[in-house]
Design a protein around this nucleic acid. Structure first.
Lengths: 199, 199, 199, 199
DNA sequence: AATGAATGAGCTTTCATTCAT
DNA sequence: AATGAATGAAAGCTCATTCAT
């Protein structure tokens, strides 16, 4: 349902409304992860959800809103897993380790979520500005430099590199679920620890 | 003209033929880099080329051949720039440095080419096996380990990371051409030198 | 609605669905019969139906399914008219008479149906093996020979000739509806009675 | 070349012109017979002829004229074979026999010609009126009735039936060249002799 | 006399979206 | 709250035709 035409009652969206939206978002994630973004038509998504295609149009203003919701949901879920663990660390090195480790943990428990977001970002690269998640990492790296724990490097470029590596792993993991994420975690942690540590 | 229909005289394709194909390939690269692969329809490409859509069908058997030609052209041009410089190095560290540096040099002169190939490869990840470029890098890393110049790490994962970082830079560079590629080269070289060097 | 996407409730396809499919099939028959198979594009068919081209895509998986449905519908309707009358006959000569007569009766009530099927079968001659209707006639002729009622001839060639004559009449009838099918029935019956009777 | 723009010199079309047209017509026949009319694009025809597609456009006003020329050439060649043999007969039964026999002889020596015309006629049934050959046969049958040699029947319908049978055989022969045309000739001759003879 | 090049019309199909119920 | 039905836009592709050389 389009936002502009609803949200009238003081209680906001009904329970069913919320549940349906969540269900549809999950099916969208599943579909995108499995078939790829290009094949993830509303028809395919609805089919997997066992609902009619127009139910999606009813609960979302359009495909764009659905995709945005997928991004928002996954980001939120990912942040909920990662944030506390990153926050709990006292050193920047620990933070970086926790960031990579928790990212991969989230990938292990939610492979399709990560893959779907990866697909979407690639697809909408031109239209979507995705600084909302990158910036925190960059900021952390900057903090580590201020503390003297990290060597001098471009925090932005390092953040890009870390994100790119994790996204690549996500795509590889979807293509090949037998990929050993524990080993990946160890490797990436060591790699970026070496790459960032102050001499 | 479609390859299957063309009568190949002893002189091969005509000058105009070659020029048109090259022009179309360039426009395809431009379109893919700017709009993203998903939006790069034959219509869009033709529009940018200022030609009719069916001119593309005339010079290429289909969209597939066009895309393959883009990959081939860019790979060839890229390899011509990078290969000699990588080959010229005697140490593995030097090779890695040359790989990154020459990749970014090529990116500077052909930013959209690199971005377009990146788009295509990600898009066709499921269908295309693109080890032809990744494997050499992986093999080089492995060699460096054998020589004792590099520490122990997963060559495959390191190759993924390096490629992912370079591809990410390519996309960022297309979106923001003011990006300082010299700085990027210095940064990435140092980052991956630190990440790979034997202790 | 495409079969693969449709959720089949216990009541099967809705009334509207059935009606639309029937309408489209009828318009396809009309178009094929009048314009010929080659000119019977989905556009033409939709135009005659007064609907959008994509309505056809909605109700049929593709042009193939539509054509198959045309064949199925006409074959079923034709068999329903002809089969009982052919079966009711006790002699082979009576059967042959009933076959021709009932075929022409069906043609009188469904001239375009017969012409359309004829067009389709000729068109798909190379791809489709359509023995399901020819073989029964051939088999009947063979039976008449075994019973001594028919003279010795090639049943296959005779069946071809009979079918070809009936198909030709169908096409002529569509082009010129004033054709006297009663006379045709008398003529063809006599012709093939003379041609097949044992001396 | 388009008729309206040429035929200026007193000698009419040049030798090359005539030869080229004949060559193209032959290739068109070959292509139509082998691939079917639907697949017989100018491209395909030109390819088989080893010439450029636009040569056809140069020598013929359009595809229509080419097709008409195919019909004309084949009809002329067929008539040249059949006409003398039919004319030579003194009885109507002999004429009918000669008609069928010579038709099948022509089919044996020019199977692709017959098949191509068959394809074309089916395709252009709606647009082409093809009485030019049917009428002579019909007229012959009528003559046989006047002479008391044939029974009373509709000459037009009988002519349709004979033509339809021969065309059907042509199609079957193309699909299956091992078809025994001698047997077909015997069968059809007997069938239509029985069907037409006065009692 | 010949042809490479280009083009527009038309083909089937897929898709997100709208609408009436 | 839900959905079957319909639609137009756009996709990749084929083809007969035109034009300049």
């Amino acid at each position: 349902m389009q936002s502009k035409t609803r949200t009238i009652g003081r209680d906001g969206p009904s329970f069913i409304e919320v549940a349906r939206r969540a269900q549809i978002v999950e099916c969208a994630i599943e579909t995108i992860a499995v078939l790829g973004y290009a094949q993830a038509s509303l028809n395919q998504i609805a089919e997997r959800a066992g609902i009619s295609k127009s139910v999606i149009s009813y609960h979302f203003a359009g495909k764009d809103e659905l995709i945005q919701q997928v991004l928002a949901d996954v980001n939120q879920a990912g942040a909920a897993v990662m944030w506390p663990r990153v926050q709990a660390e006292t050193t920047s090195a620990g933070m970086l380790h926790a960031y990579i480790q928790s990212h991969l943990d989230f990938m292990r428990t939610h492979p399709k979520h990560v893959a779907a977001v990866s697909e979407i970002l690639i697809y909408h690269r031109t239209q979507i500005t995705m600084d909302e998640d990158t910036t925190p990492l960059e900021e952390r790296l900057r903090q580590g430099q201020r503390d003297g724990e990290f060597r001098t490097f471009s925090p932005r470029l390092m953040a890009w590199t870390i994100r790119a590596a994790l996204d690549e792993v996500a795509r590889q993991y979807v293509a090949n679920p037998s990929l050993d994420l524990d080993e990946v975690a160890r490797e990436l942690t060591q790699t970026f620890t070496l790459a960032t540590s102050a001499p």
